[in-house]
Amino acid sequence: MKKINVYICGVGGQGTMTLGQLLKEAGLVDGLVVTGTESRGASQREGAVDSHVRFAVLEKGEKFNERKSIHSPLIPIRQAQLYLSMEMAETLRNIKYVAEDGIIIMNNYEIWPPQVRTGEMPYPSLDKVVENLKQFSKNVYVVNANKLSEERYGDYSGVNMIFLGIAMATGKIPVRVETLEKVIRERMWNPEKSIEQFRFGLEEGKKILAAGPA
């Protein structure tokens, strides 16, 4: 039984919870064992938030074995094959989850916490963040979903779906693209726009991955 873990993090309000929910539901539709957990409550107010998404996939002909399946909603350390971050510095916060050969997709968008705005603490540079990420996995991809959305739609309304599309382009998420689109159609309040954004992200993602890691 193959355990596939996708870790998503960001800052409260960015939509990490929504992305996690869409992936989990797509996993259910595709018949996978699915579990996960998300930050709720106090951490939502501008705080660091995350969503753990876990799939168990049976190999061909394999019988389900409770002892070898996924149970914990939390991803164990060094087990996330895909590590997604919606905010630049946040990428480092729980980097212990990424697998040695895991793919890190970092959205190069900065949300400054109060202590940075007041000048008490510096916000780290992109180079330094990437350097530190590389101590955990060499596969670091820097994207800018906010910029892509702004250029295409004039605002940040497409960030989430573009980012999801890029994540899907890694091929690490064990759900079918059609399934995910079906779930997006059912769940998002502006389905057609969301699908268009998702597909745009998917295409951008392919380019980014083809260009190789940072």
Partner: peptide, 17 residues
């Protein structure tokens, strides 16, 4: 190791919106 790598991270405490 993760603690070391994330030492350059600013604190992100919840704040008012």
């Amino acid at each position: 190791k993760a603690l070391g790598a994330s030492a350059i991270l600013p604190m992100r405490t919840p704040t008012m919106c």
